[in-house]
């Protein structure tokens, strides 16, 4: 028991050191602009098809499932408002984060871990490159930039999916749909969505890089790192979602 507690404390200390190093190296030159752009492409651009499809399905299905409840009250005209609030306030950041945890988290965890196992990280270090800045910081910055962009994308596609679901039953122009959508969401909602996405992006990058960078040696370590990256990212995202919702409720 005592030993487990000690190990837990040591893990927290290592996490703290890792976080401090990320923050320190992120603001100190030289900056790895080229690698950050490459990672934005790998992490963000290549996720657009999957995120887009998921967003469309979420918007379409959510609208379809919500219709019967509103029909009972003769309030189907409220569907655009309901969809906009649900997608912008809750679904878009959370669904983006969960999809990214699976796709991007496992990719980062496995990649860094296999580089660790095959001594590629050591090779980088002995050839005069700071591997922490090049591999870890660039990936965390890329996820922090790209997850919010993906989140806006999923929100847009999700709303469009909702619109297509609505026009299956009702007559509604795209313009009046989006007019109703933006009537119900304000600056605070957009700000809250962006804040969530930034926090989730940082978390996914940080958790995945941490488990990949410190993975155990051997091929088993690569599998474990990929798995742990997804679990750690998703778990932390849910905890953060809970905290952010509480804080935003208090503020509003």
């Amino acid at each position: 028991m005592g030993r487990k507690f000690n190990n837990l404390l040591l893990e927290f200390a290592r996490l703290h050191r890792f976080l401090m190093r990320v923050l320190r190296e992120a603001v100190s030159p030289p900056y790895e602009f080229k690698e950050i752009v490459r990672q934005c492409y790998e992490i963000g651009w290549k996720s657009f098809p999957l995120i887009g499809l998921t967003g469309f399905i979420v918007g379409f299905v959510f609208t379809k499932q919500s219709r019967p409840s509103l029909e009972d009250f003769g309030a189907t005209s409220w569907l655009p408002a309901l969809i906009s609030i649900a997608i912008v306030r809750a679904l878009a950041p959370l669904v983006t984060a969960l999809i990214a945890s699976g796709k991007v988290g496992s990719q980062i965890g496995a990649e860094l871990s296999s580089m660790n196992v095959t001594e590629q990280i050591d090779a980088m270090e002995v050839s005069g490159t700071n591997p922490f800045k090049f591999l870890v910081v660039s990936r965390i910055i890329a996820t922090t930039i790209m997850i919010p962009i993906l989140c806006f994308y999923i929100a847009g596609i999700g709303l469009f999916g909702g619109y297509l679901s609505i026009i299956g039953n009702d007559q509604l122009s795209l313009l009046s749909f989006f007019t109703q959508v933006f009537d119900k969401i304000g600056f605070v909602d957009i700000f809250a969505m962006t804040l969530r996405a930034v926090v989730f992006g940082f978390t996914i990058g940080f958790a995945s890089c941490y488990v990949g960078y410190y993975s155990s040696k051997g091929t088993e370590g690569v599998g474990k790192a990929a798995n742990s990256a997804v679990v750690a990212s998703m778990f932390t995202v849910f905890i953060e979602e809970l905290l952010i919702v509480q804080v935003l409720s208090l503020i509003s």
Binding site: S114, T118, E119, Q120, A123, V126
Partner: peptide, 11 residues
């Protein structure tokens, strides 16, 4: 430094 497993960047 020449590594035992060459440590080439495989990407």
């Amino acid at each position: 430094f020449s590594f035992q497993n060459s440590a080439l960047y495989d990407s």
